[in-house]
């Protein structure tokens, strides 16, 4: 496959970036998208150019490190797939592919396609956890009976890998799908009941502090989520927040 890549290049967070064109040849259709970028980077290194910076880690759709907005879609054209699991067979030889970083005021560009997503870490630190006694008396998680429907719902929400595609897809850069998934995950489980009130209030407060926009229910986040996290999580977040404030 021969491709024309239009890639966002930016030296650092303060300099103005822009799109640069790269022609790449002999790409195998069975390569992953990131492997294609690896080939391009090797080509750039051989030519003495600065390789393109992009985030990646596990390359098996679990860690949430990879990002990229490919042809306007966070994680590319495949539904329910991370960039690292996207394959080049999704494209045709001769295609032009636009590759941009996730865009949000709360995710500033560090370099090229790498953005600072530490805002998500701070939201998680504000309440996305359960306090467990780890002083040698830890109770086995499976010893607490949980109704199957609750466990299933919690698991669906827990599938969120915190990649930030929801923020990148939303016209308001809203993080409510991410926060909703984290709040819902614990709200369904008995282990999450103890800190239920503080969790949602603190996480929403931190989300607002980070400067994310608010949800206008366009559904773009759900459509682009690589883990198919449902919009219902936002409804549950609103519910949990109101309950915590009123009751």
């Amino acid at each position: 496959m021969d491709l024309l890549l239009k890639i966002w290049r930016q030296k650092n967070s303060t300099e103005k970036g822009g799109v640069q064109n790269y022609r790449i040849k002999n790409i195998e259709p069975d390569m992953s998208f990131l492997e294609m970028l690896d080939v391009l980077n090797q080509q750039l290194i051989n030519e003495g150019d600065d390789p393109i910076a992009f985030d990646h880690d596990c390359r098996e759709g679990i860690c949430g490190s990879c990002s990229l907005v490919i042809n306007g879609a966070p994680h590319g054209p495949d539904k329910g797939t991370t960039t690292c699991q996207l394959h080049m067979r999704k494209f045709k030889s001769g295609d032009t592919i636009y590759i941009e970083p996730f865009r949000s005021s709360s995710f500033p560009v560090i370099k090229d396609l790498v953005v600072d997503r530490s805002a998500f870490d701070r939201i998680q630190q504000a309440g996305g956890y359960v306090s467990i006694n780890t002083s040698g008396n830890t109770v086995d998680a499976n010893a607490t009976p949980i109704p199957k429907p609750d466990a299933d719902e919690a698991f669906k929400s827990a599938a969120c890998i915190g990649c930030g595609a929801c923020v990148a897809a939303c016209k308001n850069s809203s993080a409510m799908l991410f926060v909703g998934a984290k709040v819902s995950q614990y709200a369904h489980l008995p282990q999450g009941k103890v800190e239920r009130k503080e969790r949602v209030i603190n996480m929403v407060e931190q989300m607002d502090k980070e400067g994310f926009g608010s949800c206008t229910n366009t559904g773009a986040c759900e459509a682009h989520c690589p883990k198919d996290i449902s919009l219902d999580n936002i409804m549950r977040l609103n519910q949990e927040y109101l309950k915590s404030k009123i009751l």
């Binding site: 239009k6 941009e100 865009r103 949000s104 709360s106 897809a169 400067g211 994310f212 206008t216 459509a223």
Partner: peptide, 19 residues
Amino acid sequence: YQNRKARNKKYIYHNTNSS
């Protein structure tokens, strides 16, 4: 106003799934 502030830069290639 707050939502526009949250998205400081637009995509060059725009592809949306929303109505």
